[in-house]
C-alpha cells in the first residue's frame, strides 16, 4: 500500500486553488502598484493609526482605557487598535467583495470560471493585510510585555470575522451586480454600524449611561462586537473569552457564511447574463 503525503485533489478543486492564488496575487499587487515603498505602507498605515488614536484619545481627550491584564499596556490607542483590526477586516471583505465580483463580471461573460474564486482570492489578500496589522500589534504588545497564551484566540477572532464578512460579501456582491444601489447603501450602513460596535467606546460606557435596554443588547450581542470582544480578550485583556459569547460568535459566523455561500452558488451563474 502506498500513501501519499499530499492529499489528492480533484481537478476542479486544483483549478479553483490556482485561480484563488491568481486573484489574491493580483489584488495584493494592485494595492501598492506604482508606489516606491510598496509593502512598507502596510506597516506604516497601522502604526500611524495607533499613534493618532494614542494621541487623540490618550493625550487630548484623556479617555480612561480599560485595565489590561498586567497593567502595562493601559492605553486607549491600543484598546482601539485591537478592535479596529477586526472591524477593518470585516468591512474590507463586505466592500471588497462587491469590487472583486464586478472586476471579473465582464470576464465571466466571455469565459467560464468559478466566480467565487475572485472573492476568495480578494479575501486572502485582505487577510494578509490584516496579518501585517496583527504583527504590528503583537510587536507593540510584546514591547509592553502585555502578552500571554490567550493570543491564540486572536486568529480565532479573525477567522470568525472572515467567515461572517465573506458570508455577507457573497450576498451583497451578487445583489450589487444587479442593483448598483447596494454598494452605496452598504457604505452608509457600515458607517452607521461603526458606532453600533464598541470600538471608539467601551461596552461599560453603555451601562453607565441612560441607554435603552434594546440598544445595549444590540451593541453587546451583534456579531462584529462579539468578534472584537474576542480579539480584545486575546490581545488586550489576556483572558479567555466567555463561553456563551464565544458560542454566539461561532454561530453567527458559520450560519452567515453558509447562507452566503449557498446564495452565491445559486445566483452566480446568472452573473454572465447581467447587462
Amino acid at each position: 500500500m502506498q500513501f501519499s503525503l499530499t492529499p489528492t485533489l480533484s481537478p476542479s478543486v486544483r483549478k479553483s486553488i490556482t485561480l484563488i492564488y491568481h486573484f489574491a496575487e493580483r489584488e495584493s499587487k494592485s494595492r501598492y502598484k506604482r508606489s516606491l515603498l510598496g509593502w512598507f505602507w502596510s506597516f506604516l498605515n497601522p502604526l500611524v493609526t495607533v499613534g493618532v488614536y494614542w494621541f487623540i484619545f490618550g493625550a487630548v481627550y484623556r479617555a480612561v482605557p480599560p485595565v489590561t491584564n498586567n497593567g502595562n499596556a493601559e492605553n486607549f490607542g491600543l484598546y482601539l487598535f485591537t478592535g479596529l483590526i477586526i472591524w477593518t477586516l470585516f468591512t474590507g471583505l463586505v466592500e471588497g467583495s462587491m469590487d472583486w465580483l464586478s472586476s471579473v463580471s465582464d470576464l465571466r461573460k466571455k469565459i467560464y470560471f468559478p466566480t467565487e474564486t475572485a472573492l476568495l482570492g480578494g479575501a486572502a489578500s485582505n487577510l494578509v493585510q490584516t496579518l501585517l496589522e496583527v504583527a504590528v500589534l503583537v510587536v507593540i504588545m510584546t514591547a509592553l510585555s502585555n502578552i500571554s497564551w490567550t493570543l491564540v484566540f486572536l486568529p480565532v477572532a479573525m477567522a470568525l470575522a472572515l467567515g461572517f464578512g465573506l458570508g455577507l460579501g457573497f450576498i451583497v456582491s451578487v445583489l450589487n451586480a444587479r442593483y448598483r444601489d447596494v454598494k452605496y447603501l452598504s457604505g452608509i450602513l457600515l458607517n452607521v454600524a461603526f458606532f453600533a460596535v464598541p470600538i471608539v467606546y467601551t461596552p461599560e460606557l453603555l451601562k453607565k449611561e441612560q441607554i435603552p435596554e434594546i440598544a445595549r443588547l444590540f451593541v453587546e450581542w451583534n456579531p462584529v462586537a462579539l468578534f472584537i470582544e474576542i480579539s480584545r480578550d486575546a490581545a488586550y485583556f489576556l483572558q479567555v473569552p466567555l463561553w456563551n459569547r464565544f458560542l454566539a460568535a461561532v454561530v453567527w459566523s458559520v450560519t452567515t457564511f453558509v447562507i452566503g455561500w449557498v446564495f452565491f452558488r445559486r445566483q452566480s451563474m446568472s452573473i454572465s447574463e447581467e447587462p
Binding site: 476542479s12 486544483r14 483549478k15 490556482t18 491568481h22 493580483r26 469565459i111 467560464y112 470560471f113
Partner: peptide
C-alpha cells in the same frame, strides 16, 4: 492586465499552473 499576465490568467482558468 498585460498580455503575459492574461496568458497566466487564462491558464489558471483552465487549471494550468
Amino acid at each position: 492586465l498585460t498580455g503575459r499576465e492574461n496568458v497566466y490568467l487564462n491558464g489558471a482558468m483552465l487549471g494550468i499552473s
